[in-house]
Amino acid sequence: MAEIKLDMLGEVCPVPLLTAQKFIGEMKSGDTLSVETDYNRTVRNIIKWCDDMGYDFNIEDKDDGVWLVTIEKK
């Protein structure tokens, strides 16, 4: 179970989603990818992408305007 963490603070759409897609493509089933972001639109489009792909995800409010999205590859 590998875990990868991406620091996407300060990055705006579509960079965090594209980066997450790039990393998850190289991961195995069951691995998790965490994306830390301060852009709320990023959280929305990652949620949509996870729903489309059937990935499980969790969102943690880390601070005012900072979220940690954890995605589990199926």
């Binding site: 603070l9 300060g10 301060d38 709320n40 601070d63 005012d64 305007g65 900072v66």
Partner: peptide, 11 residues
């Protein structure tokens, strides 16, 4: 109002 205000750092 959305409690999302923060000063973003230049990375």
């Amino acid at each position: 109002l959305a409690a999302e205000f923060r000063v973003k750092k230049v990375k």
